[in-house]
Simulated assay, not measured.
Amino acid sequence: MHSNEFQKFLEIISAECFPVLGKSIAKTKYAPIDLSESNPELTDEDLSSTAKFTEFINNHLKTHKASVAYGGYLEQRNIYKRSRYFNAENTESRNIHLGIDLWCAAETPVYAPLDGVVHSFKNNTNFGDYGPTIILKHNINGVAFFTLYGHLSLASITNLKVGQNFKKGTIVGALGSASVNGDYPPHLHFQIIKDLQDFIGDYPGVCRKSDLTFYESNCLKPDLLLRL
C-alpha cells in the first residue's frame, strides 16, 4: 500500500480509535507545544538539563491550564544534541522527530487505540533513548501496520509477552519517570510505522534530514489516528 493510500486508510479508521491517554482527559486539556530549533522561546532555555526541561514543560502546562502538551511530528530539534546516541557516527546528526510526543504526568495510563497484539518490546537504555518501549501490530480490514509506545515505565514491560492481545481501549502501560525513560520529562512517544523493517522492540524515532523522504512515507503523521 502506497503512503497516500495508507494515509486515507488511517483517516477512515481514526473514527474508531480510543484516545491513547484515555477518555478521562478532555481534549480541551491538551495544549500544543513547539520544541523545534526555530522556536525563539527556547533560545535561553537549557534543555540539556532534565530538571530545566521538566520545568519548561510544567510551566507550559500551567500557562495553558492543560494536562497534556502535545506535538513534535517532523520537528527539527536541538534537544538531541545532549545525547551522543543521536550523533554517535560523527556524520549528519539525527534531529528530526518522527512521532508525536504527549507530555504529561508519570504513571499516566496508555491505552491501545485499536485492537492489536504485542509485536515486541524492549528497554532501550541509551541516554536519550526510549527507555521501556512496546510495539503493537494491528491488522485492520486486512491492512497490517504498527504503533510504537516509547518512554514507558518498567512495570509496563515486566510481565508482557510477545503475541499478547490488547483490545481497543485497554491499558497497554504507563508513562515512566526520567529515571527510566531515557532521561526526559515524562511523556509518551507515539509513532505509526507502516514497515517495521525487522526491528525488534525499537524503531528510529528521530532521523537525519537526508533520510526524511523515506521516513515521512513510512511513519505517517500520528494525528491521522489521534485527531488532536
Rank of each mutant, 00 (worst) to 15 (best):
V180E: 01
P222Y: 04
E107W: 08
N126G: 09
W103E: 04
C219W: 00
L102M: 12
N165E: 13
Q191L: 11
S93L: 03
E55T: 06
G72Q: 01
K209L: 14
L228C: 14
E92S: 12
L212E: 15
A88T: 06
D183K: 02
D223M: 04
I192K: 01
V180T: 03
N124S: 12
F6E: 11
W103Y: 05
V162S: 11
Y215M: 12
K62F: 02
C219A: 05
I96P: 08
W103D: 01
T125W: 05
K27G: 11
Q191H: 05
T108V: 05
L160G: 05
L10I: 09
I96Y: 04
D46Y: 02
K23E: 14
H151W: 03
F146D: 10
D198A: 14
L225H: 10
G163L: 14
L152A: 10
E5G: 04
F146L: 12
R94N: 14
D211C: 07
E107V: 12
P113E: 06
D115G: 08
S83D: 15
K8F: 11
D211M: 13
V162K: 12
Y184F: 14
Y149K: 11
E5M: 08
T91G: 15
H2K: 13
L175D: 03
K161L: 15
I135R: 02
R77E: 12
V110Q: 08
D44Q: 07
L35I: 10
Q76I: 07
I171M: 13
H138F: 13
K27P: 06
I192H: 09
V143M: 13
H151L: 08
I57H: 02
A105G: 03
D115S: 13
T43D: 12
T147N: 13
K194M: 06
G72P: 02
G131R: 01
S217A: 12
D183P: 00
I33Y: 00
P204G: 13
P222S: 14
S49N: 07
D211Y: 09
N126F: 06
F127R: 10
C219R: 06
A66M: 00
C104V: 15
L154V: 02
E89P: 06
M1S: 14
V206I: 15
Y203E: 12
S179K: 08
G71R: 03
I12Y: 11
I135G: 00
H151R: 08
V68Y: 03
N95I: 14
V117Y: 13
R82C: 12
T63M: 00
H119Q: 14
I200K: 13
P186C: 05
L47C: 03
K8E: 15
G142K: 11
